[in-house]
């Protein structure tokens, strides 16, 4: 798709918006529909569009597959670590009440952290899958 000028220009406009929307879905999941799963998929979709328009090699330079393998594991580790932090702070596993003096702020912080872990893992795994299937 090297010489499709219209597609390239439109994609340059749309990709940042897709990524921004992914962050909106990620961090607005407490207030509206959305959350880590959907945000991760939308984030991956932005990069897949980039790969379709500008070529897989360019996208692999922006986000190398090795990085995705690390971030995929890191997302789950963030989730597991949030659970362990609950134990270390004197609560149960995945008990967010102990994260702050006020249980509600603790719950908000815990939900934010684990949703972030879910989002990072989902985005990394989806992009890794796409990289493998899109290999020429």
């Amino acid at each position: 798709m090297e010489h499709h000028l219209v597609l390239r220009v439109i994609a340059k406009f749309i990709i940042p918006m897709i990524l921004l929307f992914a962050f909106y879905v990620q961090f607005h999941g407490d207030y509206g529909p959305g959350g880590g799963f959907q945000a991760g998929v939308i984030f991956a979709a932005g990069f897949i569009l980039h790969a379709l328009i500008f070529g897989l090699d360019h996208t692999r330079k922006v986000l190398p597959p090795v990085v995705l393998r690390v971030t995929g594991a890191l997302g789950l580790l963030l989730y597991l670590g949030t659970g362990l932090a609950g134990i270390l702070l004197g609560g149960n596993y995945l008990d967010y009440n102990v994260f702050a003096a006020d249980p509600i702020s603790g719950q908000h912080l815990g939900i934010l952290l684990i949703e972030m872990g879910v989002g990072i893992t989902v985005a990394s795994v989806m992009l890794s899958l796409f990289y493998i299937f899109a290999q020429p």
């Binding site: 407490d30 529909p33 959350g35 509600i104 719950q107 815990g110 949703e115």
Partner: peptide
């Protein structure tokens, strides 16, 4: 009262 998140789906799913 317990979670304080407006989207109840998120509080069930994440907490």
């Amino acid at each position: 009262d317990e979670i304080g998140v407006p989207n109840m789906v998120t509080s069930v799913l994440a907490s």
